[in-house]
Design a protein around this nucleic acid. Structure first.
Length: 406
DNA sequence: AAGCCGGGGAC
DNA sequence: GTCCCAGGCTT
C-alpha cells in the first residue's frame, strides 16, 4: 500500500486543479455517452488536437448510434481517412450495430456490456464508464502510467502489458468518492499539459508537494519504458496509369490487415536491388503484374514517396505506365515464368519474352478484382492512405510534373 | 509476451 | 533523427 497522506493529497489536489479549469473540448460539452465513446475511440494513440476536427465532422454526419449503425461503410471510412488505425472505424460500426440491436441504441451503463464492444479495451471501457456514467472505474492510458510512475516512483517497465494491470489497481484506489469522471480526466489532463513525457512542468504542478519522483530529482528518468523497435524498411514500386479519359488505375486493399479497405495506386514489393535499378525495375513491375494477368509497361520515373508506419517504413518509387489490358492467358503464362525468377537476368528475360507476346494480348479485357479506373470525383469520395492521397491530389490538380519527392 | 496496426506533432 | 500519443487485437 502507498503512503496514504500522499495518495489522499494527490486525489484531492488533482481533482481540485481540474475543476478550477480545464480544456474546452467538443466531447466535454455534454455527458452524451455516444460522444464520449466516439471521442475515446478516436483518441486511442491519437492526440487531442488531431481528433477535434474528425470528431466534429463525425458527429455531424452520424449524430446518433443508429445513424452510425445504418451508414454505408464507405462513408465511415472516408470520415476516418487520415486518422490511422483503420480497424477502429470498422470496430466502431460493428459496435454501433450491436448497441442498436441489443441495447436500443443507447450505450449501456454496464461494465460487462461496454467491455464486450468491439474496439473497447480496458482503457476505453473505464473511460466511458467513468466519464459518461461516473462509475468508479480506472482509465489507465499512457498519460496515467507516466503520472503515477512519477508520483509514486514506480520502476516497472510501462512498455510491458503487466505494468498497466498494476497501475490500474492503484488508479482504482485513488478515485475520489463520486468523482470518477472528473478525476480520470484530471489524470490525463495533467499528463497532457503538466506531467509531460519530456521536461515536465513540476513547478506549476498541483501535486508536486508529495511527488516522489520530483522529491528525489528523478522526474526526467521516469517512467521506465523500453524502446520500440525501428520500423522495417520495405521498398515498393508503384505505377500511375492513366487511360484516355484521364482516369487513373487504382485498387482497393483487402478487408483485413494494413490499411484495410483503403484505396491505393497499384504497387508491389521489390528487393532493394531491383527497386533502385532503373534498368531492372520496369521488368520487375511488368513481370509481377503479369502474374495477376495485368499487362503494364512503364513509361518513365515519376517520383519517390515515403511513408512510416509503426512497424514498417515504405520507400515507394512511382513509375508512369501505360498499355493496360487483362488476360487470363497472360497470367497463366507468367505463372510458369515466375518459377525461374531467381535473379535479375531471369527478370529481364521473362519481361522481354512477355513484351514480345504482348501484342497478342486482348486489348479490352476486364481488370483484376479490386481494380478500378477512378476520376477526380471518385478520388474525392474514396478513402486513401495519406501517401497516395498526396500523390493523386497532385495528379488531379495538374501542378507541375512528377519529378519530385512527395 | 510480442507483433501488428497510422499518422502527426514536438523536440 | 527520436519519442510518443486518452490502445486494442491477434498469435
Amino acid at each position: 500500500m502507498y503512503e496514504s497522506v500522499a495518495a489522499e493529497a494527490f486525489s484531492r489536489e488533482l481533482l481540485a486543479w481540474y475543476r478550477r479549469g480545464n480544456r474546452d473540448l467538443p466531447w466535454r460539452r455534454s455527458k452524451n455517452p455516444y460522444y464520449i465513446w466516439i471521442s475515446e475511440i478516436m483518441l486511442q494513440q491519437t492526440r487531442v488536437d488531431t481528433v477535434i476536427p474528425y470528431f466534429n465532422r463525425f458527429i455531424e454526419r452520424f449524430p446518433t448510434v443508429r445513424d452510425l449503425a445504418e451508414a454505408p461503410e464507405e462513408d465511415v471510412l472516408k470520415l476516418w481517412e487520415g486518422l490511422g488505425y483503420y480497424s477502429r472505424a470498422r470496430n466502431l460500426q460493428a459496435a454501433a450495430k450491436e448497441i442498436a440491436e441489443k441495447h436500443g441504441g443507447e450505450i449501456p451503463a454496464d461494465k460487462a456490456a461496454v467491455s464486450g464492444l468491439k474496439g473497447v479495451g480496458p482503457y476505453t471501457s473505464g473511460a466511458i464508464l467513468s466519464i459518461a456514467f461516473n462509475l468508479p472505474e480506472p482509465a489507465v492510458d499512457g498519460n496515467v502510467m507516466r503520472v503515477l510512475s512519477r508520483y509514486f516512483c514506480l520502476e516497472e517497465d510501462i512498455a510491458k502489458p503487466a505494468a498497466r494491470v498494476g497501475i490500474e489497481g492503484l488508479a482504482r484506489e485513488l478515485i475520489p468518492e463520486g468523482a470518477a469522471g472528473d478525476f480520470n480526466q484530471a489524470l490525463m489532463e495533467l499528463g497532457a499539459l503538466v506531467c509531460t513525457p519530456r521536461s515536465p512542468h513540476c513547478l506549476t504542478c498541483p501535486v508536486m508537494e508529495h511527488c516522489a519522483a520530483r522529491l528525489s530529482g528523478r522526474q526526467e528518468e521516469l517512467p521506465i519504458k523500453t524502446k520500440a523497435k525501428k520500423p522495417k524498411p520495405q521498398h515498393r514500386l508503384a505505377v500511375l496509369i492513366e487511360d484516355a479519359n484521364g482516369r487513373v488505375l487504382a485498387r482497393q486493399r483487402p478487408e483485413q490487415g494494413l490499411l484495410a479497405r483503403l484505396w491505393e495506386l497499384p504497387h508491389i514489393e521489390a528487393p532493394l536491388e531491383a527497386w533502385s535499378n532503373d534498368d531492372v525495375a520496369p521488368g520487375w513491375l511488368a513481370t509481377t503484374f503479369a502474374l495477376e494477368g495485368m499487362n503494364v509497361r512503364t513509361t518513365g520515373f515519376l517520383g519517390d514517396a515515403e511513408h512510416v508506419f509503426s512497424h514498417l517504413h515504405w520507400f515507394v518509387r512511382i513509375w508512369g505506365a501505360d498499355r493496360v489490358s487483362f488476360d487470363r492467358a497472360i497470367r497463366d503464362d507468367m505463372a510458369g515464368a515466375a518459377a525461374g525468377l531467381l535473379g535479375e537476368e531471369a527478370v529481364r528475360e521473362s519481361a522481354a519474352s512477355y513484351e514480345r507476346d504482348e501484342q497478342s494480348a486482348s486489348e479490352a479485357g476486364e481488370l483484376p478484382a479490386g481494380y478500378r479506373w477512378i476520376d477526380r470525383e471518385d478520388f474525392e469520395r474514396l478513402a486513401w492512405p495519406n501517401l497516395f492521397r498526396k500523390i493523386l491530389s497532385e495528379h488531379f490538380s495538374r501542378e507541375g510534373d512528377y519529378d519530385q519527392t512527395f
